[in-house]
Design a protein around this nucleic acid. Structure first.
Lengths: 117, 117
DNA sequence: CGGCATCCTCATAGATACTG
DNA sequence: CAGTATCTATGAGGATGCCG
């Protein structure tokens, strides 16, 4: 068993999906199944290359996503979800639903680029 | 309508419940219904007074919790959930469920102080 | 009892430039 | 195309002490 700094399983989950862009990245991967680096940059215009790479590396290390490198020129790298990543989906959906309801109640406008499927 | 810095409703929700201690605080409030400052400090030995106050103020401002001050000496302040705060519960439960499953698979040990009710 | 004020440190994330 | 590398500003969060 590996000891952890977490007080509860909620914090563990939060640590894994709570990164600034992880929810949005996971959401797009749920939607498109397979995505390349450049496609993600286009889907999320406000993310930087550095942040995208960083968040992808963390999620890969945590076993949420899969990174497949094709040894060719020009390079080609594909990202997709692992089973653990797939299992996150209902949580994302509930968080979005709650956010929609909350935003409606508080009159907050969100610049949505994605929709629930 | 108020414009927001969020790319999606997921980020809105994350902003409101993603603080370092907010999940745990909300969880205890779900469990006990009403809690005082000192009780929360005892329930979460690793939180500091500063962080507790800060997280409570943010959630109060966001309409997730209610703060009731009794004008008496010594002071008495009670915290409880608003309807928006109550509506968070299923999300917390799913995040805990996912975390439990993930921790089992990855052999991660969590120093749990709370259980699912 | 339930805070607030202050100081301090380190991690996060943005901007920018470069590479196989 | 898919990344690194470096620098920097900001602020989250810890420690400590004081207050009505």
């Amino acid at each position: 068993m590996i000891n952890s700094p977490f007080n509860c399983h909620f914090e563990l989950t939060l640590e894994l999906i709570g990164g600034k862009w992880k929810g949005l990245i996971l959401w797009h991967l749920h939607d498109k199944k397979v995505l390349r680096n450049g496609e993600m940059l286009r889907l999320m215009p406000r993310i930087t290359q550095k942040m995208l790479t960083q968040q992808l590396r963390e999620m890969e290390e945590n076993g949420l996503i899969r990174r497949v490198v094709y040894e060719q020129v020009p390079p080609k790298v594909e990202y997709s979800l692992t089973p653990h990543g797939e299992a996150i989906r209902p949580i994302l959906e509930m968080m979005i639903d709650w956010g929609v309801e909350y935003a409606r109640d508080k009159n907050i406008l969100i610049a949505c680029t994605q929709q629930k499927g």
